[in-house]
């Protein structure tokens, strides 16, 4: 595995809704095999940044480069083709509620492969088994628990064996044990598939358990204030907001916090 190869490069990215600027001047690089964490407080634009990376929202200014291709300067058809190489797990799971789990996972396969329906069934069963949901093929998303829905969403995100997997708040709404299992699953996928993984989260446990690179978005200054390995940020970064965040506000290193 070549660790230095950049997969995603974000250059001078400014994100805005109309005239309301959410974040400006974002610059960071995601390398192959990274588990890259996008972190920051609520409402700082983490999920919006993800939407820029996966092609749902065009940047107000700046570039998103995949390899050396500028994602948003491609024509829509090319961009769509590129998006097929992404797997995305949405915050709410976003399984198609009118389809069974098996249909959810097989839809991308039916769309983009020429496999026979038996092969598709086999792959679907395999993906469900990978996330511990073997035998749940014919359940509808509404019939299973929240944790199972997240895992099923992960199975769908993996359907086309993507090179890059995006996760929006994977452990939100999960109990600590399910959240940890999901974290382990993410690491396992990275190691076995060689995928690059981008995670939007503010769960400290997850950040330290899986992340090896990160960017920290700040809502007040409207830009990124730190980047790098979260463990190193904890020990080295002097910025009080980052320290506060990574220590749940229990940092006592003289930034005026009393008792």
């Amino acid at each position: 595995m070549n660790d230095s190869q950049p997969v995603i490069e974000v250059r001078d990215l400014t994100m805005a809704y109309g005239s309301f600027v959410l974040q400006r001047d974002l610059n960071f690089i995601v390398k192959r095999g990274d588990v890259f964490i996008i972190m920051g407080g609520s409402g700082c634009g983490k999920s919006t940044l993800l939407r820029h990376l996966i092609g749902l929202k065009a940047p107000a200014r700046g570039k998103v480069l995949y390899g050396d291709v500028s994602f948003w300067e491609l024509d829509p058809t090319e961009r769509k083709r590129m998006m097929r190489g992404f797997g995305v797990m949405y915050q709410s799971g976003a399984l198609w509620s009118s389809m069974t789990l098996a249909e959810n996972i097989s839809l991308p396969l039916e769309e983009y492969t020429t496999l026979s329906s038996r092969q598709i069934d086999e792959i679907t069963a395999l993906k469900l088994a990978l996330v511990g949901l073997a035998g749940f093929e014919d359940y509808y998303p509404a019939e299973i628990s929240g944790g199972m829905r997240k895992r099923a969403a992960l199975a769908r995100a993996m359907a086309l064996d993507p090179d890059i997997l995006f996760f929006d708040e994977p452990s939100a709404g999960l109990d600590p044990i399910s959240a940890r299992r999901l974290d382990e699953l993410i690491l396992e996928l990275r190691d076995s598939l060689g995928a690059t993984i981008i995670v939007v989260t503010h769960e400290l446990a997850s950040i330290f358990a899986i992340g090896n690179n990160s960017v920290f978005l700040d809502a007040d200054s409207k830009t990124m204030i730190a980047s790098g390995d979260p463990h190193r940020l904890l020990t080295d970064c002097e910025h009080p907001t980052v320290q506060n965040f990574l220590t749940r506000g229990q940092d006592m290193r003289g930034n005026g916090a009393e008792s």
Partner: peptide, 17 residues
């Protein structure tokens, strides 16, 4: 509308459907 709320439409779009 419910599909929009649940991000199901986003999920279709990112799959290029």
């Amino acid at each position: 509308g419910t599909m929009t709320v649940n991000e199901e439409i986003d999920a279709l779009t990112t799959l290029g459907i």
